[in-house]
Computed example of a mutant assay.
Amino acid sequence: MDLNSQHIQLLLLRYLKDQLNEEELKELDIWAKNSTENQALLDQLSDEQKLKKDLTTFSYIPDRSSDITRFVLVNADIKHKTRTYSLKNLIKVGYAAALLLVAGFSYYMYLNFDPVADTNTEISAKDIFASNDQPFVILPSGKKITLKPSEEGVIVGTKGLQYSDGSSISDVVIANDLSEIKLRVPKGTTYKLTLSDGTTVWLNAASTLTYPHKFSGDKRVVSLDGEAFFDVAKADRPFVVHSREQQVQVLGTSFNINSYQENSFITTTLLTGEIILYHEKNNKSIRMKPGEQVMIADNRMHLDIVNSADAIAWRSGKFVFDNKSFKEVMNDLARWYDIKVIYEGEIPKESFFGDAYRNNNLGIVLEALQSSNIEYEMEANRTLIIRGKKGGHK
Rank of each mutant, 00 (worst) to 15 (best):
V93Q: 06
Y343C: 15
D298S: 01
L73R: 11
L366R: 06
I296Q: 02
N120Y: 10
N4T: 12
V173D: 02
D236C: 01
D54W: 01
D63M: 11
L45I: 03
S207E: 12
A76P: 13
M378R: 03
S168Q: 13
T158C: 01
N331G: 07
K92Y: 13
D236W: 01
E37W: 00
R64N: 15
L101T: 14
V137R: 06
G160E: 04
N359L: 05
Y107H: 14
M1F: 13
F113E: 10
L203Q: 13
L41R: 12
L178P: 00
L42R: 07
N89H: 15
H242C: 06
Q19V: 07
K390T: 10
Q293M: 15
N307Y: 07
N283M: 08
Y343V: 13
I30V: 10
L178Q: 12
D310N: 14
E227A: 10
V329Y: 04
K324L: 11
N34S: 14
F129D: 04
D322Q: 04
G217L: 11
A206V: 06
V154H: 06
K79M: 08
K289A: 02
S223A: 13
L161T: 08
M301N: 00
E152Y: 03
D67P: 00
R382L: 04
A40Y: 01
V201G: 01
I68P: 00
K92Q: 14
I145A: 12
E350H: 14
T383I: 10
S5R: 08
T268I: 04
K148S: 15
N176P: 00
Y163A: 08
A40C: 00
M288C: 10
N204C: 02
S325M: 08
N112A: 09
S131I: 02
H80K: 15
A311W: 03
S124W: 10
S66W: 09
A233L: 09
V185K: 11
T56E: 10
T269M: 01
R300Q: 15
A309W: 09
R382A: 05
N4E: 09
D43T: 05
L90G: 12
T269D: 02
L209F: 09
V137P: 02
G94K: 08
L183P: 02
F129P: 01
S179M: 04
F326H: 03
K50V: 06
I364K: 05
G166E: 10
R220C: 03
L11A: 10
A311S: 12
D77M: 06
F239T: 09
D338Y: 00
K327A: 12
D18W: 05
I276R: 12
D236M: 04
S35W: 03
I123P: 09
Y343E: 15
I91F: 12
T190A: 04
H80N: 14
P348S: 03
F229V: 04
E280N: 13
S46M: 10
S254V: 07
E328T: 14
I30L: 14
Q246W: 05
D133E: 10
E24M: 11
L42D: 11
N258M: 15
T119P: 02
P135N: 01
S150M: 08
L12V: 03
V365M: 11
L51Q: 04
E227R: 04
N4I: 07
S196Q: 01
Y278F: 13
I123T: 14
S259E: 09
N361R: 06
G388L: 06
